[in-house]
C-alpha cells in the first residue's frame, strides 16, 4: 500500500483545500450567470443552467432556441431538472418564471405478461380484486378534479395521460373479472 504522497494525480499541498472546493463549486456553475446553479436543469446536450436563467435565454430568442454553450437545439420540454439532496425549495421562485419543468418518472416494468393475467396469482390484480377493491377503485376513478397527494409530479401532460390510461386499464380488468366470475 503506497502512501498518500506517492499516489498519482495532482499533488495537493496543504492549503489547497479551498482551491479544490472552489473547483468543485465551479463544476456546478450555471453556464449563464456563472453562479452555482439554482433550480438546476440540464439540457439534452449535458449543459447545466439555473432554470430561471435558461428560461430567460429561451424567452430572449424565441425563434432561435439553441443551447447557450454548444448551440445544439434545445427546448423547454427537453431539459431535465436536477434534484440534489436538500437542494430544492430553498430558493424563491423568481418573478415571471414558470415552475421548472417536472421530471418524468416511469415505473419500472413489472414482469407480469399477458399469459399470467387473470389467474388470480399475480400480485397486481389481486391487490385490487379483494376487500376494499370497489371503494378504492371508484374513488380513484371518479375524482378527476380533486387534488390528492401524489408521489409523481402533477400537471404535466404525461402525468394526465398516465392517469387516464391506468383508469381505462382498471375498467378493462373489472369487466374481465366480472366475466370470469359469471362464466
Amino acid at each position: 500500500m503506497s502512501t498518500a504522497e506517492e499516489q498519482p494525480g495532482p499533488s495537493k499541498p496543504s492549503g489547497s483545500a479551498t482551491d479544490e472546493k472552489e473547483r468543485d463549486d465551479r463544476t456546478f456553475e450555471c453556464n449563464i450567470c456563472l453562479d452555482t446553479a439554482k433550480d438546476a436543469v440540464v439540457s439534452m446536450c449535458g449543459h447545466l443552467f439555473c432554470w430561471p436563467c435558461l428560461h430567460k435565454w429561451l424567452e430572449t430568442r424565441p425563434t432561435r432556441q439553441v443551447c447557450p454553450v454548444c448551440k445544439a437545439a434545445i427546448s423547454k420540454d427537453k431539459v431535465i431538472p436536477l434534484y440534489g439532496r436538500g437542494a430544492t425549495k430553498q430558493e424563491d421562485p423568481r418573478n415571471n418564471v414558470p415552475p421548472r419543468p417536472a421530471g418524468q418518472r416511469t415505473e419500472p416494468e413489472t414482469s407480469t405478461g399477458f399469459p399470467g393475467f387473470g389467474f388470480g396469482d399475480g400480485g397486481f390484480h389481486m391487490s385490487f380484486g379483494i376487500g376494499a377493491f370497489p371503494f378504492g377503485f371508484f374513488t380513484s376513478t371518479f375524482n378527476f378534479g380533486e387534488t390528492r397527494p401524489s408521489p409523481a409530479p402533477r400537471g404535466t401532460p404525461q402525468f394526465e395521460e398516465e392517469q387516464f390510461l391506468s383508469k381505462v386499464f382498471l375498467w378493462v380488468a373489472l369487466l374481465f373479472i366480472c366475466w370470469l366470475v359469471l362464466a
Binding site: C53, W57, P68, V69
Partner: peptide
C-alpha cells in the same frame, strides 16, 4: 449579433 450565446 445573431450568433451570440449567453454562455459566451
Amino acid at each position: 449579433k445573431d450568433q451570440w450565446a449567453a454562455a459566451m
